[in-house]
């Protein structure tokens, strides 16, 4: 098991290094931040001074070497716009995004797996058909539109829930969280539903497909032939088997929800990383974009590692394969 983890960590390091090169090259290509940063009235001397101060007069490989050198020390540069360390800026926004993403995933799993199971066990029932039709809607309606409709219905017309912002927050482990206060929780509901819609449809479809396949297996019939209750057959024999693909996809999706909740955050004015990213790209705030992207890569790598570990808990065949290697 330790060997397995070590090997995965090495792979992850390579991925992060490769990503650093890609991100840096990419960001280099998208434009010169000087044009945005310095006022048009500045003269050539001021301009040259600013370029030198930011290190933008150096050739690309030198800039990259400097970037790597400070990155290893945990310094991803200083935001051109805000004048504070970029990494700190991104991390400061991270809890808001994490909270939103986890709330969305929780919704997707807690609703999606039972609904998918039901639709898979009774594919021809009315409920099963309704669930599947609903999941098609969840897939195809654009997130921003659903978000605006939610605001329209629940915030504007009914006035039940607030339309934007994080609301009141409370501190836990030195970080501000919305879900700890009543007001914050109310603010969290709509964006979480909005972000969960697509994932929910995905989980329903995965769970249903898995259930339909597993339910026909001999071992399910054998379990019934042992005289087990339907709850045990479905809740243990079927559920544990369908969880394998669901966990794999959910792991990947969790990463993407955290990294790309941009649309939902924009619609609901949720002060998370996604909103910061959009602003930074518009202002060509290079260090922030780089810090954001590297943090995202790191996140994906960690999540994938965790998924692999959960996966091996679910499937004994993988566990032993990994242990021997």
């Amino acid at each position: 098991m330790i060997v397995f983890i070590l090997r995965r960590l090495t792979q992850s390091a390579v991925v992060i290094a490769a990503m650093a090169v890609l991100v840096f090259t990419g960001i280099f290509a998208i434009g010169n931040p000087i044009d945005v940063l310095i006022s048009p009235e500045a003269d050539e001397v001021e301009r040259a001074a600013a370029i030198a101060r930011l290190g933008l007069d150096q050739p690309m490989h030198v800039q990259f070497a400097r970037f790597v050198e400070s990155a290893v020390g945990g310094d991803l540069g200083t935001s051109f716009v805000h004048g504070v360390p970029a990494l700190g800026l991104v991390l400061q926004r991270f809890p808001a995004t994490l909270e939103l993403a986890l709330a969305a995933m929780l919704l997707a799993v807690l609703l999606g797996i039972p609904l998918g199971l039901w639709a898979g066990l009774k594919p021809d029932s009315v409920a099963g058909r309704v669930i599947m039709t609903g999941s098609i809607l969840g897939f195809s309606l654009p997130t921003f539109w659903v978000g605006m409709m939610l605001i329209m219905a629940f915030a504007v017309q009914l006035g039940w829930l607030p339309a934007g912002g994080r609301g009141q927050t409370a501190s836990l482990f030195g970080v501000q969280w919305s879900f700890l206060t009543r007001d914050g929780l109310a603010h969290l509901i709509l964006p979480a539903i909005n972000l969960a819609t697509f994932k929910l449809s995905l989980v329903i479809r995965l769970a249903r497909a898995g259930t339909r396949e597993v339910a026909l297996q001999d071992y399910v019939k054998f379990a019934r032939a042992k005289g087990l209750s339907p709850a045990r057959v479905v809740g243990v024999h079927i559920l544990k088997n369908i969880m394998i693909p669901v966990v794999t996809v959910l792991g990947l999706e969790l990463g993407s929800v955290i990294a790309f909740s941009v649309v939902t955050e924009s619609v609901f004015a949720w002060p998370g990383m996604g909103k910061l990213l959009i602003e930074s790209i518009l202002q060509l705030d290079r260090p922030v974009v780089v810090a954001y992207l590297l943090l995202t890569v790191l996140l994906f790598v960690v999540i994938n590692l965790v998924v692999d570990l959960i996966y091996s808990m679910l499937d004994p065949r993988i566990r032993l394969g990994g242990g021997r290697a």
């Binding site: 071992y219 042992k226 024999h237």
Partner: peptide
């Protein structure tokens, strides 16, 4: 009656035991 008075054995032993549950789990539950 299933499993207690009438038991069943299936054709393909590769398919009749649940791959993700230990033999102990599958016997104890029975």
């Amino acid at each position: 009656i299933r499993g207690r008075r009438i038991a069943m054995i299936f054709q393909d032993p590769m398919m009749t035991l649940n791959p993700v549950l230990s033999v102990e789990t599958q016997m104890v539950e029975a």
